[in-house]
Design a protein around this nucleic acid. Structure first.
Length: 134
DNA sequence: CGTTTGACTACGC
DNA sequence: CGCGTAGCCAAAC
């Protein structure tokens, strides 16, 4: 429920995608989740909603400095780390350093800064693996 | 070795 | 617009 059945593989896939987000852009947990194939037989919508949290746990587990974890925010355009935490401040600072602006409600305009996902040729070249079925 | 603990989201009120 | 809810787990205590 909170974690994918096989975190090692799923996290690696998430990190691979997140690395594609260009500086100055953001994506959401749900968007990242929806880029990853689902196992045969599962309902994509339900699975991707679960996946959003899995993407969150993958971000928590990032250790590779090349993964721009700060560019992943929630569907409301807000930072999901606890408000006021050092992590949240660092995320906001990093995003602002890339030219991203926050409104008075601490939100990023997804229409303006949202990333549309990797190119088709990138997807073809990488052939992402669906998570192991439950 | 049993408990605890999580970077989410769509939907109905 | 804000709040509560349900959704095929596993690593760290």
């Amino acid at each position: 429920m909170w974690n994918p059945p096989n975190p090692r593989t799923y996290n690696a896939t998430v990190w691979l995608i997140v690395k594609q987000i260009p500086a100055g852009c953001v994506s959401t947990y749900g968007q990242i989740a929806s880029m990853i194939p689902v196992p045969d037989g599962s309902d994509p919508d339900q699975y991707h909603r679960l996946g959003a949290r899995w993407v969150g746990s993958a971000m928590r587990a990032v250790r590779d400095p090349e993964v721009p974890w700060q560019r992943v925010i929630n569907s409301q355009g807000k930072i999901s780390l606890p408000a006021g935490s050092s992590g949240a401040r660092q995320q906001r600072q990093r995003l602002e350093a890339e030219g991203i602006e926050f409104d008075e409600k601490e939100r990023v305009d997804l229409k303006q800064y949202g990333w549309d996902g990797p190119d088709d040729d990138w997807l073809d070249a990488h052939d992402l693996m669906p998570p192991k079925p439950f």
